[in-house]
């Protein structure tokens, strides 16, 4: 490789898109796996159009910014207690939140009892996203050609470990802390900031760290695809059952017999703590599934 070529390769690397096909001819050539003919035509007009496009875009966005700023100026002032947003709804949530939900964290109590249907929809969105990503990226015969499958099978990446001693030591120190913080945030969601979703993300992050450093085979020993599907579905279904019971009794004016406990204790707040734990496990599973599907195409 000559010096100028090396420089060109370096600048391509700095530009960051050396892995992209730059022209339609290159796309066709790569699809046919033929040698690339260097093209001369047509994309020049696209590039010129791209520059024009960006000029128009900047103008458009500046106009949008001016209009929106003029709108924002006429909004109610920032931090004023008399804002229309601070009406009787948040007053009710704050004043009667503890006696009705038993949760010291009023935000967590609100989204998991008064607005639990909304939050169930959010969990369903996460479930759907995990399903769609599985459909798109799973390594099976619909998504990969036989050649890719052969190549992927040949270098079995389950055993790929990082040999770096610094990374391994740091991860071994960090992993217990991250798992502990994840469980803490999940279990104390009704007493302190946090809740099922953030705790689950921290747990999932810990799993990702472990899998990245010690190879996904070591995670598969205690967390395989079967367990993943089981946890995901069972958590969402338990959540749905709790929700149905809570909403049914509430809307029919029945007593729901849910023991609220003493506010401030760990075991208190009725349905909020179980739901936090269920959501946390589901989110941790989903996030590890995202990682596994993106990096290897299977759990």
């Amino acid at each position: 490789m000559s010096t100028s070529n090396r420089f060109k390769a370096f600048f391509d690397w700095v530009d960051g898109e050396e892995w992209c096909a730059k022209t339609p001819d290159e796309v066709i050539a790569r699809q046919k796996k033929a040698p690339v003919r260097r093209p001369t035509y047509e994309l020049d007009s696209y590039r010129r159009f791209r520059r024009l496009n960006q000029a128009v875009g900047a103008l458009f966005c500046i106009t949008l910014a001016v209009v929106l700023t003029l709108v924002v100026v006429s909004f109610p002032p920032f931090g004023d207690p008399a804002n229309p947003a601070n009406n009787e709804v948040p007053a009710r949530y704050i004043e009667r939140g503890i006696e009705e939900t038993g949760s010291a964290n009023l935000v967590g109590g609100m989204i998991l009892s008064y607005r639990v249907f909304d939050t169930f929809g959010e969990s369903s969105v996460l479930f759907l996203a995990a399903t769609c990503v599985t459909m798109l990226l799973r390594r099976d015969r619909n998504n990969t050609t036989s050649r890719d499958l052969r190549e992927l099978r040949s270098d079995d990446r389950a055993d790929r470990k990082d040999k770096d001693i610094v990374l391994r030591t740091v991860v071994l120190l960090l992993l217990p802390v991250s798992v502990m913080v994840g469980f803490y945030v999940m279990l104390f969601g009704h007493l302190s900031p946090g809740g099922g979703f953030s705790g689950g993300s921290i747990l999932g992050g810990g799993l990702i760290l472990y899998s990245r450093t010690f190879g996904s085979g070591s995670v598969r020993k205690f967390f395989n695809e079967h367990l993943y599907h089981l946890v995901k579905v069972v958590c969402l279904m338990c959540y749905g059952l709790i929700l149905v019971y809570y909403v049914f009794t509430g809307s029919n004016g029945l007593d729901n017999h849910i023991w609220l406990g003493i506010p401030g204790n760990i075991i208190s707040s009725g349905i909020i703590m179980p739901i936090n734990v269920l959501v946390g496990f589901e989110v941790a599973c989903t996030i590890y599934a995202f990682y596994a599907l993106f990096s290897e195409g299977e759990m």
Partner: peptide, 28 residues
């Protein structure tokens, strides 16, 4: 809004960055 702070630090700085990096790695 400390709830949002925890969630954003775990999700925005953690999970979505990991997903973007994995996409780049996969494409490469």
């Amino acid at each position: 809004a400390p709830d949002l702070a925890i969630t954003e630090a775990a999700v925005g700085a953690g999970v979505s960055t990991v997903l973007y990096f994995l996409t780049l790695q996969k494409i490469r």
